[in-house]
Design a protein around this nucleic acid. Structure first.
Lengths: 154, 154
DNA sequence: TGACAATCATTGCCTAGGCAATTATTGTGC
DNA sequence: GCACAATAATTGCCTAGGCAATGATTGTCA
């Protein structure tokens, strides 16, 4: 089957099928994923973006709001308010540093740490739904593709 | 390399890397794509969601607001307003049908049809950025993966 | 050292999507 | 044919992200 059936090189209004475009597929996938994740996280009163921030803190890959923004391509203003909400729920707390007073470290509270494994297993159950029928090799391959696409863009 | 490096079967707070999760990758990809598409469409004063609706009309796969909503997993209220904006720009028009007065057909105006090829080529340039370095086989394979994931979810 | 650039967090403002309720219209089963 | 369910489109309300501006702090370089 020629590539053109999936990703033609140039635009032709007659043959172009929006349902097969990258934007359509990624957009729908994101909405479906968000829907399922929010449903799975709802009992813990946490949204998907909030959970990803908590996972990043727990994993140690990020601890400042600016890190989260870069990692998640997120708006700084929105991140401030997202952390506000997490803090209001008592899952996270801001810690000022006397050495560096410019940025604020965000850390999990005991309640946040306690919620983490529940959020994690809930997330994995959702991922399992989407990856149903994928072999290990296919899964590995697809994750590689996604990463390669992200690496192609600044 | 074991699958666990990319998609472990179960959650482990120690080893789980949020940057490798499906949600993170799809979310970031969607934001990057949206950013590039909006930049590419900006000269035509059209956003990415608006463009996808126009493409669907042009391709004939959908012509009612409810169709767009199902295809794009979009909220009906938001779709009403999206069409309002497209109509205000003169790119689209609502056509009432005397046979079926419940739903409204949305069609492209001459201006909408004129803008279409520009939007299409702009979109393809963006897709080309993300797919840089992908062989035809890889592209085909990845689109298949994305569709399979979507088929796994209601 | 001192001016200037860069970074970080925050705020206000605007836009847009999600949700629930409403109205109008059409289909279905008794 | 009629009651009732189902579907479409719309509206109001709320939430949340994008953008621009601001203030505070830190790094850099002449």
């Amino acid at each position: 089957m020629p590539r053109s059936a999936f990703a033609p090189q140039s635009f032709d209004p007659k043959t172009f099928r929006p349902q097969d475009s990258l934007g359509y597929l990624i957009g729908n996938l994101r909405r479906a994923l968000l829907e399922e994740l929010d449903k799975a996280f709802a009992p813990h009163d946490v949204t998907a973006p909030q959970a990803i921030v908590m996972f990043q803190i727990a994993n140690g890959v990020a601890e400042h709001a600016a890190d989260f923004c870069r990692n998640l391509r997120y708006d700084p203003g929105a991140m401030t308010r997202l952390i506000d909400r997490l803090e209001a729920k008592g899952l996270v707390r801001r810690v000022r540093n006397s050495k560096n007073r410019r940025n604020v470290r965000v850390e999990l509270t005991p309640a946040g740490n306690a919620a983490l494994p529940h959020l994690g297993t809930a997330a994995f159950e959702v991922f399992g739904i989407f990856l149903r029928g994928f072999s290990k090799a296919e899964t590995r391959q697809m994750f590689g593709f996604l990463r390669r696409m992200l690496a192609n863009v600044p």
